[in-house]
Nucleic acid binder design. Structure first.
Length: 683
DNA sequence: GGGGGAAGGACCA
DNA sequence: TTCCTGGTCCTTCCCCC
C-alpha cells in the first residue's frame, strides 16, 4: 500500500481529550429527541440497465435486513468468526449472512486455516468464560466506588466536549474496484473484485453475493462463481488518490489522509468563509470529486472524527449523512448504535462486550462499573467516550505523525528446509533494506515474524548493538532468531516470514549539529515528510554515498583502534600472558569471537563480561556519533551524548553498563546466545 | 514497586 | 488445493534495579 499509515485515531489505543465545557447530565434512560438529518446526492451511475443476469442469485436476506450481531450461542461463534473482519462493510446489509456463513464454513472446513480459526475461537470462548466468571465475582462485592469513578470520568469527559467543529470523513466507494471500472467500464455491471488469493476490495454487485474484502479468493468464487478477479495496480490507485486529494485540499489544506481512499477534513473555516451549511459544502465537495475524478465518495459530517467515520458508512455508496452537532442528538445516535460500528471494536471485542450484555453503545452505561476491572483502564476510557459519542476534533496531515516501524513479510508455499528458510530470510532482508532506504530509517530493534504451516504466528525480537539498515546486518541479526526458532519448534514448516525494524532512527539528516547542539527535529522524524526545508538548508539531503564511505572508513579506523585497545586491555588483565587457557579450564569454556570488534577473546567469564561491556560502550558512542553527526571521512568522531541510547547498553538510571556492577550469570548467558552466531551463518 | 523489553494479539485499511 | 500486507497500540509477563 502506498498510503501513509497514521495512528488510528478512533481506536482505544489513541484516545484524546475534547475541549468544550458543558455540564454532564446522565441521560442513558431518558428518551431523547432526535433531529438527525440525512441526505444523499443523486447517484450518477445506476448500473442496472445492461446488467447480465447472474449465474447464481445474490444471497438476499429472506425477509428483512439482518443487522450484524455477535453470536449469542457459543455454537455459532466459529461460523460468525469465519464471516471475516469486514462484516460491517457497506453493501452487506441486505445479504443473508446465514447462507454466506454456511458457504464459507463448508468451503473452509478441514483446512489448516479452519483448524486454526477453531482453536482461536475456543481460546476466545474460554477468555469470555473467564470474563463472565470475574463479573459474577464482582457482583458479590460492593461496586459503588467503581460506579462513582465511572460517573466522575463521564462528567470529566463532558466538560471537554467540543461541538464547535465540523469534521467530515470522506471514503471513496470500493476505491480500487472503482478505479478498475474506469479503465474497463464493462466491469461496472458485473460482480468484480480486486486482488488474487485474498480480495482487497470488490464492487457492490459482488457484495450482494456476500463477497467482501479480506475474503479468500476461492471462498469468494464459491459464493459467486461468475466473480471476475483483477490483479492490483497500485500505481493506478495512487495516481487516482492524488486527484481526489487535490480536491479535498481546497476544502481543508490540512486534511488528514487516513489511508489511500479515506480522509478526514475540518471544514469549519471553509463553511464560515463561504457562508455555507456543512451539508451544502459536502454535497459540493462530493460533486466536485466526481466531476474531476469520476470517483464517487461517501461522507459523514459530525462534531468529531469518530462520529464522522461512523456516519460516512450510513449512506454508502455515494451518499452523505449529517449528524447534528448537539449533545442530545449525539447521545441518542450512540444509544442504538451497535458496538461493532465503532472503529476500534472488532470481532473479538464485540463478542466480549456482547457476553456482558453490551450490544449497543447505549448499553455501555449500564455496565460502566464493571468495565475497568474486566477490560482494563484504556478500554474503560475508550468505551466511556463511545457512550458519549466523543472523539477528536483536531485534524492534522498524516505527515505530522511519526512512523514507528518499517517491515516486510511474505507468504509462500510451505517451506521446511533450513537452507531455503535461510535464503528466504536473506531475500526478506534485501527487501527490507530497500524499504528502509526508501523511508530513510534504521532500526534499533529487529523483529522476526513467522507463521507456521498451521497458521500459528510467533515473533521474536532483539536489539543489535547499533541501529541497522543494511541487508547484511538485517540477515546477520535475524538469523540467530530464526535458527533458535527452528531448534525450539518441532516440525518447523513455515508459510510466512517477515522482518520489521522498530525504534527507528532517521538517516535523513542528523539530529545534532557539528557543535553538539540539538537540531529542531529529533533523530526520529516523520517518514513521509518531503517538503520540509531545514533552516539553513544544509543537511536537507544527506549524501548517502559519502556517508556510507565515511562510515566505512571510520569503522575501519575504529576497528584498528579497538584491536589496539583490546590488546592493551588483555595485556592489563593478563600481564605478559596472551596465550589461551589450556587444560580442563579451557575445555569447560567455549571459545568465542566478539561480534562487535570481531576479535577472538579469552573464554573466561570475567574477560567476556568486561570485554562486552567495554565494546558495547564504545560501540554505543560510535553509533550515536555516526547517526547524529556528519563526520568528514578524515576527521575523528566527536563524542556526543545520545538522546536515545540503545536500550541494551544502558541501565535504568542512564549509566552505561560498564559503570555498573558486573553482569549476572543469566544475563551473560543471554548475551552469549545473542552474540554467538550459529555455525554456517554468513556474517 | 516501577520501568522497560519481549511476545502475543486485536484492530485497521 | 486455496485464507494478505503493513502498520499501530495494548496487555501480560518477566527481569532488573
Amino acid at each position: 500500500m502506498n498510503s501513509t499509515p497514521v495512528p488510528d485515531a478512533l481506536s482505544p489505543r489513541s484516545l484524546n481529550a475534547c475541549t468544550e465545557a458543558e455540564p454532564f447530565r446522565p441521560t442513558a434512560s431518558a428518551p431523547l429527541g432526535s433531529n438527525m438529518t440525512q441526505s444523499g446526492v443523486p447517484k450518477p451511475n445506476p448500473p442496472t440497465e445492461s446488467m447480465p443476469p447472474p449465474a447464481t442469485e445474490p444471497l438476499d436476506a429472506p425477509s428483512r435486513p439482518q443487522p450484524s450481531r455477535a453470536p449469542s450461542d457459543e455454537h455459532d461463534s466459529l461460523r460468525y468468526h469465519l464471516l471475516g473482519p469486514s462484516l460491517t462493510k457497506a453493501g452487506q446489509d441486505s445479504v443473508d449472512q446465514q447462507k454466506v456463513s454456511e458457504v464459507i464454513y463448508n468451503a473452509s472446513k478441514g483446512s489448516k486455516f479452519f483448524n486454526n480459526e477453531e482453536v482461536k475461537d475456543r481460546v476466545l470462548t474460554e477468555k469470555i468464560n473467564r470474563i463472565l466468571a470475574k463479573k459474577r465475582q464482582l457482583d458479590k462485592v460492593n461496586l459503588s466506588s467503581e460506579l462513582r469513578r465511572a460517573d466522575d470520568y463521564l462528567a470529566e469527559l463532558e466538560l471537554g466536549r467540543d461541538l464547535s467543529q465540523v469534521v467530515i470523513h470522506i471514503d471513496c466507494d470500493a476505491f480500487y474496484a472503482a478505479v478498475e471500472e474506469l479503465d474497463r467500464p464493462e466491469l461496472r455491471h458485473v460482480p468484480m473484485a480486486v486482488g488474487k488469493g485474498v480480495l482487497t476490495t470488490c464492487n457492490y454487485h459482488a457484495r450482494k453475493f456476500g463477497c467482501r474484502s479480506g475474503m479468500a479468493g476461492f471462498v469468494a468464487m464459491k459464493l459467486c462463481p461468475q466473480l471476475i478477479c483483477v490483479p492490483m495496480n497500485f500505481a493506478k490507485y495512487t495516481a487516482k488518490a492524488e486527484e481526489v486529494r487535490a480536491v479535498l485540499a481546497q476544502y481543508d489544506p490540512r486534511f488528514e489522509s487516513a489511508s489511500c481512499d479515506e480522509a478526514y477534513l475540518n471544514i469549519t473555516q471553509y463553511c464560515e468563509e463561504h457562508h455555507m451549511e456543512p451539508e451544502e459544502a459536502v454535497s459540493q465537495l462530493r460533486a466536485e470529486v466526481h466531476e474531476k475524478t469520476k470517483i464517487t465518495v461517501s461522507a459523514g459530517i459530525a462534531a468529531n472524527a469518530k462520529l464522522a467515520k461512523i456516519c460516512s458508512n450510513k449512506n454508502k455508496p455515494n451518499g452523505q449523512f449529517n449528524l447534528a452537532r448537539d449533545r442530545q442528538t449525539i447521545l441518542e445516535f450512540m444509544r442504538t448504535l451497535p458496538t461493532r460500528k465503532v472503529n476500534g471494536i472488532g470481532r473479538v471485542f464485540e463478542r466480549e462486550l456482547d457476553a456482558i450484555g453490551i450490544k449497543t453503545c447505549g448499553d455501555i452505561y449500564g455496565q460502566r462499573a464493571y468495565l475497568s476491572s474486566l477490560f482494563g483502564q484504556k478500554a474503560f476510557q475508550f468505551l466511556m467516550q463511545c457512550y458519549l459519542g466523543l472523539g477528536r476534533t483536531q485534524i492534522q496531515p498524516a505527515e505530522d505523525y511519526e512512523r514507528k516501524s518499517v517491515g516486510t513479510e511474505t507468504t509462500f508455499k510451505e517451506l521446511s528446509s533450513p537452507d531455503s528458510l535461510r535464503q528466504k530470510l536473506r531475500d526478506i532482508a534485501e527487501e527490507l533494506e530497500g524499504d528502509l532506504k526508501r523511508t530513510e530509517f534504521k532500526g534499533r530493534t529487529l523483529c522476526i515474524k513467522i507463521k507456521m504451516h498451521t497458521y500459528e504466528v510467533y515473533t521474536r525480537q532483539m536489539t543489535p548493538p547499533f541501529a541497522i539498515h543494511r541487508a547484511d546486518d538485517l540477515y546477520k541479526y535475524g538469523l540467530p532468531m530464526l535458527e533458535k526458532l527452528m531448534k525450539e519448534m518441532p516440525n518447523f514448516k513455515l508459510r510466512l516470514m517477515g522482518l520489521r525494524c522498530t525504534h527507528l532512527v532517521s538517516t535523513k539528516k542528523p539530529g545534532i549539529d557539528f557543535f553538539g547542539r540539538q537540531r529542531a527535529q529529533a533523530t526520529s522524524r516523520p517518514a513521509a515528510r518531503s517538503d520540509s526545508k531545514d533552516k539553513d538548508g544544509e543537511w536537507e539531503t544527506w549524501p548517502e554515498e559519502e556517508f556510507e564511505e565515511a562510515a566505512r572508513q571510520e569503522r575501519d579506523d575504529e576497528m584498528n583502534e579497538l584491536e589496539k585497545l583490546s590488546q592493551e586491555y588483555n595485556e592489563q588483565k593478563n600481564p605478559g600472558d596472551n596465550t589461551p587457557l589450556q587444560g580442563p579450564e579451557a575445555a569447560e569454556q567455549e571459545p568465542w569471537t566478539c561480534p562487535i570488534c570481531t576479535l577472538p577473546q579469552p573464554p573466561d567469564d570475567a574477560t567476556f563480561n568486561a570485554h562486552i561491556d567495554f565494546c558495547l560502550s564504545r560501540q554505543t558512542i560510535k553509533e550515536v556519533v555516526k547517526e547524529t553527526t556528519p563526520i568528514p571521512a578524515t576527521s575523528k568522531p566527536q563524542l556526543i551524548p545520545s538522546k536515545h541510547p540503545p536500550a541494551k547498553t544502558k541501565g535504568k538510571r542512564g549509566r552505561p553498563k560498564s559503570e555498573q556492577g558486573g553482569l549476572d550469570e543469566k544475563t551473560r548467558e543471554k548475551r552469549r546466545a545473542f552474540f554467538t552466531l550459529p555455525a554456517g551463518s554468513t556474517s
